[in-house]
Structure formats: structure tokens, C-alpha cells
Design a protein around this nucleic acid. Structure first.
Lengths: 200, 200
DNA sequence: GCAAATACCGACCAGTCGGTATGTTTCCCC
DNA sequence: GGGGAAACATACCGACTGGTCGGTATTTGC
């Protein structure tokens, strides 16, 4: 039993190292030796647990995306109107530790290095982890006439994009507290930047 | 004189090839031989014009960003209110040929592979080509009370992000004509997604 | 028309890195 | 308590690629 614990511990260390490294460098610029070193293991150990660099990367991403999907699911299943649920989802997201928060933009960053099944399944995992959950909330909002009828998928991507903008250091400086940042995003998304009360 | 023409012609071909290749693959996944082949030249020719792979990449990006800066400048200098000028800027952008349109997201994609001066000057070029121009328009809007007082830089990034979302194939399907897409972005940014006429 | 310069070619080098083959240690099970 | 398998460690391979360098062809200035 001790050997199995030890094994899954190293596996977790390798995944952690991979997450940290792939977050700050490109897929191509991270070497398997760096991963091994950061995980306090050797290349042999890494290749014992993951068949290839690509598999390691994808395993890390899929694990992380699945975590997020479950987290956001809770906001989707929450009672309340569209805006409240979106606020909850975004708040949950902001309260993630830094290393886990930015993995999502990473999918967009180097999804292009893969092709075929790996690529499609990665995109699918990302879609179902984030945009589709937002989309569900938005669809309810459109149905309840809280939101203007528009393509929900496009709206959800737009919302995600606005959240991503708020990850920048500059946004952190403008809104030191998390609450104000949250309000800003929701206000911008729901009510727009204009002061005009009646849209043209 | 003919030799100089010939020279700058190959240089242009190399830059074109670089743009096309770097657009669909990572920096690391593009080889100098591929660039040479696509440009119908040899590696020797490429290295004759550009000292290194990094220099080629940066030269290509800077040239392209400078073009865009000049293009967007025209919208900034235009008379009219904030919304009209933003519309013009975005419209100009949409009317660019496809290969030139998406270069901008490319900066965000692999700015991380560089460090030091190269990195900072690239970010600066990007900033002054796009977000800062949007920012100027927004600042005027805030001053004229057409836009709610908020951090203009953050607002400009948000706007750029919304435009980027509309580059997706799905957005192209939802809005086959350019005009409708333009309206959608502007409506979303200025008036938000909500149906509520009076913001909370 | 010739010599120097410029543009260009392509074989080659050196370093890197993903992946493998082969030990070696540790633990589990009978 | 021993044999076997799983978890590592280490040495190494081979392919790839950025960059170099000696050489060639074409201009251009004189």
C-alpha cells in the first residue's frame, strides 16, 4: 500500500510541476527534464507515469478543467436570477489560487500545437468546463427576459473574455478588492459602458 | 538598382511567409527552413536579411503593428462621438484581409517566449497600435459624459477582447454580414446584454 | 570590361530534447 | 523469505533545427 501511495504522490507532484511550468512557458519551451526536476523526480519517473509529453500536458489540462467544470456547475445549479448566478460563478473563479486560475487562458494559448482527437477533446473539455456553463445561465436569462435575445454562445464567450481581461495585473491594481472587480465586470456585461439610459 | 529591388522583394516574400506560418503555428513550431521554403528562398537568404529567428519574428510583428497603428489613427482623428469613432475603428479592422486581422491575437499568444527589451518593445508596439488608440477614444467619451467614468485602459482592453471574440468562426456564422456583427459588438459594449432600461 | 560589393546558396556543425533501453531498488504476496 | 513486479534511476540514442561559413552568381561603379 505504501508503494501505491508513493506512486500517486509522485504522479501528483509531476502534474503540479507541469501545471506551473506550462503556465509560464510555451508547450515547446518546457522540457521534460525541467518537469522532472521541478517535481523532484527524474525523466524516467515522468515517462513511467505519462507516455509522452503531449499526454502529460493533456492529462494536466483535463484534470484541471474537470475540477473547474464541477466548481462552476454549482453556480449553474444555484437558485436565483441570471445575474446572481453569474456573479457566483465569477466569484468562485476569482477565489481560486493563482496557479489554477490562469490555466484556462492557457488552453486558448496553445491549443494549436495539437491536432486530431487530442485537439478536439481538449476544446470540448474547455467548452464544457466554462463557456457552456455560462451559456446555460445566459439561456435561462434570455428565457426569463432578463437578457436581450442574442446568440447565447457568443454572449458566453464575450463574458469569459471580459473576465479574462480582469486577470491582468493592471486590473488588479485598479480594483484591489475582489468585490469591486466583480461588480465592474457584471455592470459592464449587463449594462454596458454607456451612461445613456435609453439605448439607441 | 535592379538588385536592390530584387533584394527587397525577397525580403517582403520572407516577411509574408513568416506572417502566414507564425499565424498558424507556435513560434517554436515554425522552422527557418519552412519560412525559406514558403518564401521560395533558402535558409541562407533568410539569414542574410534577418540575423536570427527572433529578429525575423519581431520584425514581422512590428511592421504589421505599425501598419495597424496608422490605420486606427485615422479613426481616432475622425470627428464624431465616441461610439461613431469606435465603430469606424472596428469596421476598418474587420475590413482587413484575413491574414492581417489575426496577427493581433498572436502577440498575446506568444509574447511569453521573449524576455527583456524584445518583450517590452513588442508589448509597447501592441499597446500603442490598438489598446491605446481605443483608450483615446474612450477618454474623450468619458469627458463628454457619453461613457461612465471608469478606468479607460481596462475599458479599452475589454473592448478589444469583445472584438477578438467576434473573430471566431462561430461569430462569423451568426453574423454573416459585417454590419450586424459590428452592431452587436457596439451594442454589447455600450448598452450591455441586459434588457433592463434602468441599470441598478 | 574588370573588380569589388551584394545577394544568395546549401552543406555542415553543434547543441538540444523527446524518447528508450537497461539497470537498480523497494515493496508486496504467497 | 524469496521471487516477481512495480517504481523509479541513468545512460544513451537519434532526429531535428538554429545558426555558420565557404563559395557562387549577378550587379554596379569606374
Amino acid at each position: 500500500m505504501a508503494t501505491q501511495e508513493r506512486s500517486s504522490a509522485t504522479q501528483a507532484r509531476i502534474l503540479d510541476a507541469a501545471r506551473a511550468l506550462f503556465l509560464e512557458r510555451n508547450f515547446a519551451d518546457v522540457t521534460m527534464e525541467q518537469v522532472a526536476a521541478t517535481a523532484q523526480a527524474t525523466k524516467g519517473a515522468v515517462y513511467h507515469h505519462f507516455a509522452s509529453k503531449e499526454e502529460l500536458y493533456l492529462a494536466m489540462l483535463h484534470a484541471d478543467l474537470e475540477d473547474k467544470r464541477e466548481l462552476f456547475q454549482r453556480a449553474v445549479d444555484m437558485p436565483g436570477n441570471c445575474r446572481e448566478r453569474l456573479r457566483r460563478l465569477t466569484s468562485d473563479y476569482f477565489h481560486l489560487p493563482r496557479g489554477h486560475r490562469e490555466i484556462i487562458s492557457l488552453v486558448r494559448r496553445d491549443v494549436n500545437v495539437f491536432e486530431g482527437d487530442a485537439r478536439t477533446s481538449l476544446i470540448r473539455a474547455y467548452q464544457s468546463a466554462l463557456p457552456e456553463q455560462v451559456e446555460k445561465i445566459l439561456c435561462d436569462g434570455v428565457e426569463a427576459k432578463q437578457i436581450e435575445a442574442a446568440d447565447p454562445r457568443l454572449l458566453s464567450w464575450s463574458f469569459v473574455a471580459l473576465v479574462e481581461v480582469s486577470l491582468s495585473p493592471h486590473a488588479g491594481r485598479v480594483f484591489p478588492g475582489g468585490e469591486a472587480k466583480l461588480d465592474h465586470i457584471l455592470n459592464l456585461f449587463f449594462d454596458g459602458a454607456s451612461t445613456a439610459v435609453v439605448p439607441n
